[in-house]
């Protein structure tokens, strides 16, 4: 990631923590990371750079600081755009159109599958029997093999071409170009992200985001009954909520208390609470039983005690009596609920 890639993830009002952004990219899914990821509207970054090293954002942040584009807050880890930074951040940088749905797909697995499927079909279309397949993991190879066995036939290449074209036409011209250039197939080795970045004078990260946007569009289209990649991609759709958290949530739905759930599932009550917070953050507001947990009494108590922007709320600043009555969990869930409903000021 370069400085400009980080710049567009920052805000002029809200101080954002570099470590949160880093943890999102590296898929360190703690509740705190997820909560702030939601507050920053950056949850789509989850797991996009799993191999990124710790502290990898420090250098780009330093560059931004030196150019006067950001200022630091109470700690050097908290940064905010300066007016000059804000001006630069609004300059042309690609905003992926499909990003709100990225957490619903195992995008990395889908990416591998689509790439290999395109290569296999392309070579098949040109009747090449011997060629080097893209190096992928066993799961991808098996999934593509199964899919191809079932899908191959004279009409497959044409059908796949039309489907991909339809998907890419929904995106800006440059994104369609960049995604097409990513593909490997008959007599087309495909181009690397770095090569495309040079060609278009963009950063590799921006090119990567464009490609993910294109691949996501393809995956979305592939939900259609007649799409040739439907069966290949079906198993890459996932709930962003971990299985364990889903189980806790389901138990709440059956009317169990947190203590009962914790005992039954042999987890700590605090873990059960974390499950619920994770689910609340990652699910649409209507899919989570806020009313069951945040009783009208709790809602009223917090609404009275809390004022100002959500980010300024502090549990430790609440009246002692309120803290004693309601654990941090309720406070955090209330904030998530307000955030999700777009209630910025309670």
């Amino acid at each position: 990631m370069e400085a400009v890639d980080l710049l567009v993830l920052l805000d002029s009002q809200q101080f954002r923590r570099l470590r949160v952004i880093e943890n999102l990219l590296r898929e360190r899914k703690t509740v705190s990371t997820l909560y702030w990821g939601q507050r920053y509207r950056l949850l789509y970054l989850l797991g996009l750079a799993k191999k990124m090293s710790r502290g990898a954002l420090d250098l780009p942040a330093q560059a931004l600081l030196q150019q006067g584009l950001i200022v630091t807050g109470e700690t050097p880890d908290q940064v905010r755009l300066t007016p000059k930074g804000e001006q630069q951040a609004t300059q042309a940088y690609y905003q992926p159109q499909t990003r709100d749905t990225w957490t619903r797909l195992d995008l990395m697995a889908a990416r591998q599958r689509i790439l290999l499927a395109v290569q296999v079909t392309s070579q098949y279309a040109h009747e090449t029997k011997r060629y080097y397949p893209l190096a992928t993991d066993l799961a991808t190879r098996q999934a593509v093999r199964r899919w191809f066995h079932q899908a191959k036939g004279q009409s497959l290449p044409g059908h796949l071409f039309v489907s991909l074209k339809t998907a890419l036409e929904q995106l800006p011209e440059m994104v369609a170009e960049v995604v097409t250039a990513l593909f490997t197939g008959y007599q087309q080795p495909g181009q690397t992200v770095d090569q495309l970045a040079r060609k278009y004078q963009r950063t590799p990260w921006e090119i990567y985001l464009m490609q993910l946007d294109g691949l996501m569009q393809i995956a979305q289209d592939a939900q259609d009954q007649n799409h040739p990649l439907r069966s290949l991609l079906q198993s890459t759709w996932q709930s962003p909520v971990s299985r364990s958290a889903q189980q806790t949530l389901a138990a709440v739905g059956r009317g169990r208390s947190l203590e009962q759930i914790a005992t039954a599932r042999r987890i700590k009550p605090s873990t059960a609470r974390e499950h619920l917070l994770e689910a609340a953050i990652l699910m649409p507001v209507t899919a989570f039983p806020y009313d069951w947990i945040l009783t009208p009494e709790i809602q009223h108590a917090f609404a009275t005690a809390l004022a100002g922007p959500i980010d300024s709320w502090q549990y430790s600043a609440l009246p002692q009596a309120l803290q004693e009555r309601y654990a941090f969990f309720y406070f955090r869930l209330y904030a998530i609920w307000c955030d999700k409903r777009g209630v910025e000021r309670a």
Binding site: S122, L160, F161, L168, T180, A181, F183, Q187, Q188
Partner: peptide
């Protein structure tokens, strides 16, 4: 021929 032609050539 742009990206469509390139995509076409793959298949």
């Amino acid at each position: 021929g742009g990206w469509t032609a390139q995509l076409r050539r793959l298949f």
